[in-house]
């Protein structure tokens, strides 16, 4: 009896289409592109702010365009998907044990969603 194990290779470039849970995972990971692009926009805004009122007015003017709207809408979708996917796994990343029992996951997730809503409202209240 000879051994001749057969190895099934996994596709290195499109494995994430093979199962819905992998595709969801990839969608979560790809949000980093939106976060990165948006952070670069913030740095760019900061540069114009440092350059003075005219430069900053120019920045706001450039932002007020179809491309600017599209960019922000895309960033909003990416950022919200990041937030929800991040908060939803917090009970796994940071389980909290109180006495013998673990704090139920939905309480930990709920607290994060509550904090998120609170921070968003405060920023909107102070910023708009």
């Amino acid at each position: 009896m000879s051994r001749k194990p057969y190895i099934r290779e996994m596709s290195k470039t499109n494995w994430f289409f093979s199962q819905p849970r992998y595709t969801r995972y990839m969608a979560r990971e790809v949000t980093c592109i939106f976060i990165l692009a948006y952070t670069i926009l913030l740095i760019f805004a900061l540069k114009n702010l440092a350059d003075g009122p005219e430069a900053y007015a120019g920045f706001l003017e450039a932002l007020n365009s179809p491309l600017g709207i599209l960019f922000n809408l895309a960033a909003l979708v990416g950022a919200v998907y990041h937030s929800t996917s991040w908060f939803n796994v917090t009970p796994q990343a940071m389980p909290i044990q109180r006495g013998e029992e673990f704090v139920p996951g939905n309480i930990i997730v709920g607290a994060h969603y509550g904090g998120w809503a609170l921070i968003s409202l405060i920023v909107l209240f102070l910023g708009v």
Partner: peptide
Amino acid sequence: CSFVGACSEVCPKHVDPASALQQVKV
């Protein structure tokens, strides 16, 4: 590990390996 989480979804004994691995990372 990049926290795909599939391990915990398929575990027949409801162990949560993904949780253990994130705790190890922390």
